[in-house]
Design a protein around this nucleic acid. Structure first.
Lengths: 247, 247
DNA sequence: GGAGCACGGTGAACGCTGTTTGCTTACAGT
DNA sequence: ACTGTAAGCAAACAGCGTTCACCGTGCTCC
């Protein structure tokens, strides 16, 4: 047996930091399992510690509180969702914008359905851990939004659809849209109020569709929501000049 | 002092039943206050009992469990929301269908914003009390849906918009829509699959719009969502042949 | 190589939670 | 007036998040 030398992987991390990171990951992994198995209130520090052969106070060396753990999880979920959508996006050739958008939207729904509890944490009502936009969760959320911004920007450049002029928009709405564009880094030169209006409209429809399915509000009345989703897609995409293709 | 005789009010209820009902109402009222002040996890039997000058086990004479209490609350909220929307509906003359629909949709949003926590309970993710469709909550939810069904039915009779034929719908979607219509009491004669398709589309958009606002998912990027709501309304209503009017 | 220190982890404790069980008390109906 | 029923309570069990004092190991620095 030879003594293991410092591996180039995890370059600047000492051994101590590595094992620390490992247990932190184990905590989050177990927490996630409890989350999907028993819902958000089912995540308990004591249960996690028990399963790890530890005691609850020990976990406080890794997270400042239970809310802190959940915040960290939401950040992870955002990046996981982002990667999932991005993978779908990049699975198609660069110039197939229509296909990439379609794949991205479907990937969003697919991830949400495969990870209901996680989705609820990300897009559900702001629970008592309302400070969900903390500890990287906000940045992760912004990176997620950036995907759709990029795709939408491409559509804008290609002039795929008719952008409503400011005259068609109420002044109050314009102010809100300007704030929106400013907050998201868009300059008023790059993108018009009308463009932001169309983007939000699309996003709201997609969000409502997926939320309704994940939260199962039509479940007693409609078993399979996929046909509805696929039927709504062309309607949504048409407003941004994207052509629909069957899955 | 004369002995109080049986009052005609609360006809068939004995005195005992009346006071019982009163305390049950008091419990729910306090629970609701805790709900709006501290969110769903902030509702605790012990805290409620404490505030009432009781002990926690006493509450079990009125509700079988905490979940039971919450279920009962959701039922109440559904009927309250229903009454709120119905009041808006009936505040306009019978034949002003457009105005009534517009008022109903706005009332839905208004109630949701004025009762965020309650709305989250009704339309948010199914928590561990996933059996929210119990104890009258289901019926109350159906009564709520019935309002929109009635309004929509009127639009259908007036042939306000072009109903897509089955040929334009995928077969799988048709099956789901048929199940939908059947579950909701519509007969296939009264309403076509295309009609159900349009209805669900509208509902999903409204739902997404209000959910996004109540759950504050654009709050960091858009302070006031009302202009967006008012901007989306005409787009939604146009698909069912209803004309928009400014509020 | 030995001293010191930071870190990971433990046990006990506080105060909170839902829920069950047995008991007492007060009221309603006959 | 008597009796049965229902309301409410005290105690207890099990679990929770969180804090505190403490201990041992492993790393670092001299």
């Amino acid at each position: 047996m030879h003594v293991e030398e410092d591996k180039p992987t995890a370059a600047a991390l000492s051994r101590r930091e590595r094992v620390r990171e490992a247990t932190a990951q184990e905590i989050k992994q177990i927490a996630r399992r409890h989350l999907v198995e028993q819902g958000p209130p089912g995540v308990s520090l004591r249960a996690i510690a028990r399963e790890m052969g530890m005691t609850a106070p020990g976990l406080y060396r890794y997270f400042n509180s239970l809310d802190d753990l959940l915040s960290s999880l939401t950040a992870d979920f955002f990046t996981e969702l982002t990667e999932s959508v991005q993978a779908a996006d990049q699975s198609l050739p660069e110039d197939d914008v229509d296909g990439r958008i379609l794949a991205s939207l479907r990937a969003f729904r697919t991830w949400a359905l495969a990870n209901r509890a996680e989705f609820a944490l990300l897009f559900g009502p702001p629970g008592p851990h309302q400070r969900r936009h903390e500890g990287g969760a906000l940045e992760a959320g912004q990176r997620f939004a950036a995907i759709f911004f990029a795709l939408f920007d491409r559509l804008l450049q290609e002039r795929r659809f008719e952008v409503p002029g400011d005259a068609e928009l109420s002044p109050v709405l314009c102010r809100q849209l300007e704030a929106f564009a400013e907050q998201t880094g868009f300059t008023t030169e790059n993108v018009s109020n009308g463009a932001m209006r169309v983007l939000t409209s699309c996003w709201v429809r997609l969000y409502g569709l997926v939320c309704m399915e994940v939260f199962q509000h039509l479940s007693f009345v409609m078993a399979d929501m996929e046909p509805l989703f696929e039927a709504e897609l062309p309607d949504i995409l048409r407003t941004v000049g994207v052509s629909y293709r069957a899955p």
